[in-house]
């Protein structure tokens, strides 16, 4: 049976349809579309960036039992077992009580794993459930999308890092020798691993793909990255091998900021951290702009 225009017009008498018509006729039909000068695009991207940030931060706080609590519990166990129980038998490392020595490493470990897993799971979920299309069809620049997700990852990394610091203070006294270095390194490292998580999510096609990197790459590199020991304990050949692990530089830079001791010159650590940040940012930009893994 065909339905003519008249069939629909009869519906116009229904009150809810009147609301629909009224809505569509509203005078405040303000458009942001049409010719967009640079100033307009900048404003659109700033509002867009704030929106992505707010959404990502809300996601972290909404599911805080999954995002914030587990790493805090894990790190508490590390402090109890490695710091308090075993640490007493180890004595000092680099002239510091063992529990104090590992505190910056454990904080950094929490920051690394959480900033990474936040972005990889958030972006991959958006890709899998297709609501990433909300962003892809919008006029937002690729840089805005990358920075938005990166800030979400930084937020969770720092939130968990702060909580682990509070836990650490229950077990040992920590002074911050170089506040600027401490703060800048932790933010930069959180940014790096947020971008690494994004890279992983771009390539990922299954849930297995987002667990392979944390399990087989991130965890071994973190454990061997000087969290629990000074590389001066290693044989010269192993010391040389350890130097290719970027996490070693990050952990030592952070430890230098907090405790004033490091196996690595701080300048070299900064250079590596900044280089990695730029490389990962450019790689993500390029892949997203090309549509790798997200556009057919």
């Amino acid at each position: 049976m065909s339905v003519g225009r008249g069939d629909v017009d009869r519906d116009a008498a229904r009150p809810e349809i009147d609301v629909a018509r009224e809505a569509a006729r509203a005078d405040d039909f303000e458009r942001v579309s049409g010719p967009a000068p640079m100033q307009g695009l900048l404003a659109v991207n700033l509002v867009g960036l704030r929106t992505i940030m707010r959404r990502e931060i809300r996601r972290v706080t909404r599911i805080w039992v999954q995002t914030i609590v587990p790493p805090a519990i894990t790190m508490t166990l590390y402090f109890v077992i490695f710091g308090s129980l075993i640490g007493r038998r180890i004595g000092e490392m680099d002239g510091l009580p063992y529990i104090t020595y590992i505190a910056p490493g454990l904080i950094m470990m929490a920051v690394i794993t959480n900033s990474f897993s936040n972005v990889v799971s958030s972006f991959f979920s958006a890709k899998l459930q297709l609501y990433l299309e909300e962003l892809l069809v919008s006029p937002l620049s690729t840089a805005t999308i990358v920075v938005g997700y990166m800030i979400g990852g930084i937020f969770r990394g720092l939130a968990v890092g702060l909580l682990v610091t509070v836990v650490a203070l229950l077990f040992t006294r920590i002074s911050v020798e170089h506040p600027f270095i401490t703060l800048s390194v932790v933010v930069l490292v959180a940014a790096i691993f947020s971008l690494a998580g994004l890279l992983n999510a771009i390539f990922a096609k299954t849930f297995d793909d987002i667990s392979i990197v944390p399990t087989f790459v991130l965890t071994p590199l973190t454990y061997l990255g000087g969290v629990f020991f000074s590389i001066s304990l290693l044989a010269p050949a192993w010391q040389a091998a350890a130097m290719v692990n970027p996490i070693l530089y990050m952990v030592n830079a952070f430890r230098y900021g907090m405790l004033g001791v490091s196996d690595i010159p701080i300048g070299v650590a900064y250079a590596l951290i900044l280089s990695l940040l730029v490389i990962l940012f450019v790689a993500n930009m390029w892949l997203l702009a090309k549509g790798r893994g997200i556009r057919s």
Partner: peptide
């Protein structure tokens, strides 16, 4: 509201 934000709507 998020969708509006992606298009620069305050």
């Amino acid at each position: 509201i998020n969708q509006a934000g992606y298009y620069g709507v305050r």
